[in-house]
């Protein structure tokens, strides 16, 4: 009776870029849930129940950066402009942009079947992903790395 191990080593299971990105999309979705929960907990601590409206909570939840909630009633936002929140927001930004852009590539692959067409779309998507991430990181870290005055 066939009883040998039916476990394939890493190189023999078809774990290519395509499947790695498939896994990344699943894991990054979970990571986004975790990061957003951390941000919403932060919003509650900084006074979301009385000093923010729903839009502000969402803005902080998806991009926990004081610049994004300047219209709230929270008297002092400066204490929240810390490296911790910059790192949290950066992680969220990187994960969300990569997740979203990969989603676009997957949808594009459904409709573009030529190898060259796919290469062009992937190249443009990677350029878009890197540009959006760099712009976002600049905004998130500008005030911490280059304080005004």
């Amino acid at each position: 009776m066939a009883s040998k191990s039916r476990s394939l080593p890493l190189t023999k299971r078809g774990l290519n870029f395509e499947m790695m990105m498939w896994l990344f999309t699943r894991l990054s979705a979970l990571a986004m849930y975790g990061l957003i929960l951390v941000a919403i907990a932060g919003a509650l601590i900084m006074g979301a129940r009385t000093q923010m409206n729903m839009a502000d909570v969402l803005r902080w939840g998806f991009m926990p950066n004081p610049n994004h909630v300047q219209s709230t009633d929270i008297p002092a936002l400066e204490p929240w402009a810390t490296p911790f929140w910059a790192v949290t927001a950066s992680l969220l930004l990187i994960v969300a942009v990569a997740h979203g852009v990969h989603g676009l590539v997957v949808i594009a692959d459904d409709y573009i079947v030529s190898a060259n067409g796919r290469k062009i779309v992937r190249l443009l998507s990677i350029i878009m992903m890197i540009s959006m991430t760099l712009i976002g990181l600049y905004i998130l870290w500008r005030d911490i790395l280059f304080p005004a005055g």
Partner: peptide, 20 residues
């Protein structure tokens, strides 16, 4: 359990137009 080409098939279905 009797088949011996699992790895070969896994590589085929992992292509861009396969599982993903």
């Amino acid at each position: 359990s009797r088949d011996e080409a699992a790895s070969e098939r896994m590589h085929i279905i992992a292509e861009t137009d396969g599982l993903a």
